[in-house]
């Protein structure tokens, strides 16, 4: 009981906050719209087996969800930005992810099988990228979201070289 894990050294790009906010906002609006449409359908159909008290209060569902989604859109990206950290040493890829629940992950570089960077359309718009490090176990695979695109590419290239030097994937 003498030690504990420190946080990894680097934060992800500041632009990730905007990207996460926009992403959450878009999906929240969509889900709220779908919920609203469903409720509208149920209310206007007014089936006899749907109890009246439910019909009267049905509008609460999308409204409550919208409230929750709003809070989440504002809070989660900022919180996530505070939590998300990463560090790549010569031997280990160390990440911390999550917001409410957190995950600390250590992946030894020598056991890495593949490294790849991906860019979705949203990420491209914000010049960000996701770095994925895979080992023989799905549980030993690490993902760093919201990295600056150039940074991600550079790190993945360095890692690829390093893997070629020390790789032994233990399968």
């Amino acid at each position: 009981m003498t030690t504990r894990l420190r946080a990894p050294q680097y934060r992800v790009s500041r632009r990730a906050v905007s990207m996460w906010t926009l992403g959450t906002a878009v999906s929240s609006v969509m889900v709220t719209a779908v919920l609203g449409a469903l409720v509208w359908g149920v209310v206007s159909a007014a089936w006899s087996w749907v109890p009246d008290w439910l019909l009267e209060r049905a509008w609460w569902i999308p409204v409550i969800y919208a409230g929750y989604a709003l809070v989440k859109t504002v809070v989660a990206p900022r919180w996530r930005y505070r939590v998300h950290r990463w560090e790549v040493t010569s031997d280990v890829v160390y990440t911390r992810t999550g917001w409410l629940s957190r995950t600390w992950q250590l992946v030894p570089v020598s056991r890495v099988q593949t490294v790849d960077t991906t860019q979705g359309w949203l990420e491209r718009a914000f010049r960000l990228a996701t770095l994925r490090v895979r080992t023989a176990s799905y549980a030993g695979s690490s993902t760093i979201e919201g990295l600056d695109a150039d940074e991600a590419r550079r790190v993945s290239e360095e890692l690829a070289v390093r893997i070629g030097d020390v790789g032994d994937d233990a399968t």
Binding site: L100, T103, W104, V107, A170
Partner: peptide, 11 residues
Amino acid sequence: AIIGWAWSQSP
């Protein structure tokens, strides 16, 4: 045989 560690913690 261990090829990584991960801790996860809920609130």
